[in-house]
């Protein structure tokens, strides 16, 4: 696997609580899943995906976790056009 260089912007993942360690009174579906954290930061040493690594966050704190993504990005968008919305406020009857 390719080496990811120290200083790269990456994302880590960490299981914070196993299902059996979680809070009481959770709905059935949630109860069966672990409580998971993700966070982005700068890698503090060369590593590969899947390694346990340390990152330095934007405010300089260090966090440990499994390296899951190189260069995590935001790709949320306006989504595919919902034609239903286009008629609103234009068609006489939809005013």
């Amino acid at each position: 696997m390719a080496k990811i260089e120290k200083g790269s912007w990456v994302e880590i993942k960490q299981v914070v609580l196993q299902p059996e360690e979680r809070a009481q009174n959770l709905p059935e579906d949630t109860k069966q899943t672990p409580y998971v954290m993700r966070m982005s930061g700068f890698l503090t040493a060369d590593a590969e995906l899947g390694d346990t690594v340390t990152i330095r966050s934007l405010i300089g704190r260090e966090h440990e976790g499994t390296l899951v993504t190189l260069n995590p990005s935001y790709s949320h968008s306006f989504g595919p056009t919902m034609a239903e919305l286009l008629h609103i406020g234009i068609d006489e009857e939809a005013k």
Binding site: V16, L17, R22, A23, T30, Y35, V36, M37, G41
Partner: peptide
């Protein structure tokens, strides 16, 4: 939040957010 330079701790669903 991240654009403003905050450290963002991203979590799955659950009230344990309070613990973190």
């Amino acid at each position: 939040c991240e654009a403003y330079g905050a450290e963002v701790i991203k979590l799955t669903v659950g009230p344990e957010l309070f613990y973190i």
